[in-house]
Simulated scan of single mutants.
Amino acid sequence: MDIQNIAEFNEKVLNSDIPVLVDFYAEWCGPCKMMAPLVEELSREAKGFSVYKVNVDNVPEAADKFGVSSIPTFVVIKNGTEAARNIGAAPKQRLLELINKVI
């Protein structure tokens, strides 16, 4: 679920055949830690979409590509482009609404 480098991001996210919910986060971010169990839950329940986490400190190129300046930021990516975004912590229903807009 954790993307380790930009090559893996390109392969698993940008080249995905299905929409992808990307959680841009950092280890030191309190709200990010709060969202982690919810993101894991969404990943287990995912049908018709994938969920990946990108640590902005480890893969800054991915965060730069999507203009992420605040974390957590959740971006739904479809066909390699941004389809929806939520900045900040959000309830599960909000994240599902973002995903459901594009699947």
Rank of each mutant, 00 (worst) to 15 (best):
M1W: 02
D2C: 00
I3E: 01
N5K: 11
A7T: 14
E8V: 09
N10P: 00
V13R: 03
L14P: 10
N15K: 14
N15V: 01
S16M: 11
D17V: 04
D17L: 07
I18G: 01
P19Q: 05
P19D: 06
L21G: 06
D23T: 09
A26W: 09
W28N: 08
C29M: 12
G30V: 13
G30D: 11
C32T: 05
M35K: 07
V39W: 09
E41V: 01
E41M: 05
L42S: 05
E45K: 14
E45D: 15
E45T: 02
F49N: 03
V51K: 02
V51E: 06
V51Y: 02
Y52M: 09
V54G: 02
N55E: 09
N55A: 08
P60N: 10
E61D: 14
A62R: 09
A63K: 05
K65C: 00
F66G: 04
G67L: 04
S70C: 07
S70F: 07
S70L: 13
I71T: 06
P72R: 03
T73D: 05
T73M: 06
V75Y: 05
V75C: 03
N79D: 15
G80F: 07
G80N: 12
T81L: 04
A84S: 15
A90W: 06
A90L: 01
A90E: 04
P91Y: 09
P91D: 14
K92P: 08
R94W: 00
L95Q: 10
L96Q: 11
K101I: 00
K101Q: 15
K101N: 14
V102E: 15
V102R: 07
I103V: 15
